[in-house]
Design a protein around this nucleic acid. Structure first.
Length: 559
DNA sequence: AATTTCATCAACCGCTAAGGA
DNA sequence: GTCCTTAGCGGTTGATGAAAT
């Protein structure tokens, strides 16, 4: 039963003249009947807790009508309600205020929630701002329920359709960063664009920062890679090309220019071994894989632990045995072992078997998908998840044919952690060139999508600060991290503090559109759809993109 | 029919930021 | 500059009813 707590703050008798006598009587009766607090008021009167009664609601509504919202502590004083201001505010906000929409979320609302969550993380209040009539509490409850359901069913948190939709919207909006009210715009526009953080801070400018990829929000990554690698079939070199264009545009500060040089140089060096890379990253495996499979990870083990490409989305749901803190959109699960992300990290020194998420390797522990997915409140989205799970399960047999013998029958996500012979080749390559661009990029790739990404709210400006965190400072960087990470102290490495987006662009780029265009270039806008192999829903990628790296370099004129 | 499990909802708690004295 | 109050946010817990066993 609910507790009754005494709050020490002194409150007087209050102005009971505002309170209807019948309401007062009803309130007292309700209090008695509900076993709530004492009907006697005065200093030290215990404040009632627990469910609100209709009489209390009436009192609160009446008070707000007369006095407006705010000053909630005065409610108790002025009405005699034995509720703290906090409770009054909550009751009003969640239940009593007008225009509240009751009932189950519509499919459209569910979809929007997922999109918003992908963007904002657990910013329920902000999300509620995009859902008129809905409260943060409702959204939070819905999401938590959804998380539990998906977790139990080993389903991705974000349905492919939602991610694809975001990607499509991204494409549509790529040339239209106008920061409109439209949620899709807001999702992807410069209004709350995280991509600069990603591109300039962590991806382009600072090779070292690549190692800090876990700090990046999955949203940024999904936006970037979903666009660049999947839907647009953009090769990495295309991005390098665009980076060069950005550099040539002259709108970047020397720090970024140097950084681009550094990346380009590394990429150039690396391009000579593109075939090796292709093998290292498991594209042979990809080529062999069933093209219709939805669960093929484009980067094979390079994206170990990532579901970013699963079904074209970046689900971070993984089977888990214990309580899981789900702030997935930003892959913000930090409550786990600070070093746990290493489990997903591909690094030269690691043995393949170490790279496999034990959860993902324990298919036997994967709970079966049952009818629990079909709750009465199920919308099309939840049903979609169920169908997705069924499809994934049905596809397991096909995938098993290309799995390593070390992998037992697995979960639908196991393909993200396949330890294939190609991986071994890649490992050899890494061992040969431990500090190559490849290792950095692969490291980045592997880390970027780990579920142990530190809690970086996608919308949080903290990401700027995080981009400056040194490995030693980073809470996600265990002691083992140092050993895994090749150290690059090139003279061209810019100081992290110079990599903030607002510091990267010189004064002649005061026009935000220039910045956005530059970012768009970095992200591979304008990439044609020449390469169209489709691995699954929304996954369009094959080795041709990588095989054309040299060509891309030549076209870019960087040598 | 009884028990258990699960989903949903409502409310509370702790923390933080903002604003004013 | 410090302290206090207030409002707000996000996490967590508990109650309840439905479904499953």
């Amino acid at each position: 039963m609910y507790r009754v707590k005494s709050e020490g703050e002194g409150e007087g008798e209050g102005d009971c003249e505002m309170m209807l006598q019948e309401q007062m009587d009803s309130l007292v009766a309700d209090d008695v009947s509900s076993g709530g607090g004492s009907p006697h008021r005065g200093v030290g009167t215990p404040l009632k807790k627990g469910p609100w009664t209709s009489a209390e609601d009436a009192i609160l509504v009446d008070y707000v009508k007369k006095n407006g919202e705010g000053n909630w502590n005065a409610v108790q004083k002025n009405t005699g309600l034995f509720r703290c201001g906090k409770s009054c505010r909550l009751r009003w906000a969640n239940h009593l205020r007008p225009n509240l929409k009751k009932g189950a979320f519509t499919p459209e609302e569910e979809r929007l929630i997922i999109q918003l969550h992908a963007k904002m993380g657990n910013k329920w209040a902000r999300m509620a701002g995009h859902l008129p009539g809905r409260t943060d509490n409702e959204i939070k409850n819905y999401w938590n329920t959804r998380i539990k359901r998906c977790q139990r069913a080993s389903l991705p948190i974000y349905p492919a359709s939602v991610c694809n939709q975001s990607t499509n919207e991204d494409q549509q909006l790529s040339g239209n960063f106008n920061g409109g009210e439209n949620i899709s715009n807001d999702l992807l526009s410069g209004n709350s664009l995280y991509l600069p953080d990603f591109t300039s801070d962590n991806f382009i400018a600072n090779p070292e920062a690549l190692s800090y990829a876990p700090q990046l929000s999955a949203v940024s990554i999904s936006n970037l890679l979903g666009q660049s690698f999947a839907s647009k079939s953009c090769s990495f070199m295309d991005q390098v090309d665009q980076a060069g264009m950005l550099k040539q545009s002259g709108c970047v500060l020397p720090a970024l220019s140097d950084a681009i040089d550094s990346v380009l140089s590394s990429a150039d060096h690396f391009s000579n071994d593109s075939e090796k890379l292709r093998q290292a990253l498991g594209f042979d495996y990809l080529n062999e894989a069933n093209a219709s499979s939805k669960s093929i990870a484009p980067f094979g083990v390079a994206l170990t632990g990532s579901h970013a490409f699963l079904n074209g989305n970046f689900s971070a749901s993984r089977p888990t045995n214990g309580p899981l803190k789900m702030e997935l959109p930003s892959l913000q699960d930090t409550e786990s072992d600070p070093n746990s992300w290493l489990k997903y990290t591909v690094a030269p020194a690691m043995q393949p078997t170490e790279l496999v998420d034990p959860y993902l390797q324990s298919p036997s522990a994967t709970p079966s998908v049952k009818s629990e997915c079909a709750s009465p409140r199920n919308s099309g989205l939840l049903e979609e998840l169920l169908h997705e799970a069924q499809a994934l399960r049905s596809g397991k047999n096909q995938q098993s044919s290309v799995r390593s013998s070390s992998s037992s029958a697995g979960t639908p996500y196991e393909t993200t952690t396949v330890v294939s012979p190609e991986f071994d080749m890649g490992q050899e390559y890494w061992e040969e060139q431990p500090s190559s661009f490849l290792s950095e990029y692969a490291h980045f790739s592997g880390n970027s999508f780990t579920e142990s990404t530190p809690p970086v709210s996608a919308a949080s400006p903290d990401i700027f600060q995080l981009s400056k965190i040194s490995p030693a400072q980073s809470p996600s960087m265990g002691s083992g991290e140092q050993a895994l990470e090749p150290k690059h102290e090139s003279a061209a490495s810019p100081r992290p503090e110079n990599l903030r987006p607002d510091a990267l662009f010189s004064g002649n780029t005061a026009d935000p559109s220039i910045f956005n265009n530059a970012i768009a270039m970095l992200l591979g806008n304008g990439i044609d759809a020449e390469y169209k192999p489709v691995l699954g829903d929304g996954i369009v990628l094959d080795s041709s993109s990588w095989n054309n790296m040299q060509h891309a370099f030549q076209m870019a004129g960087f040598k």
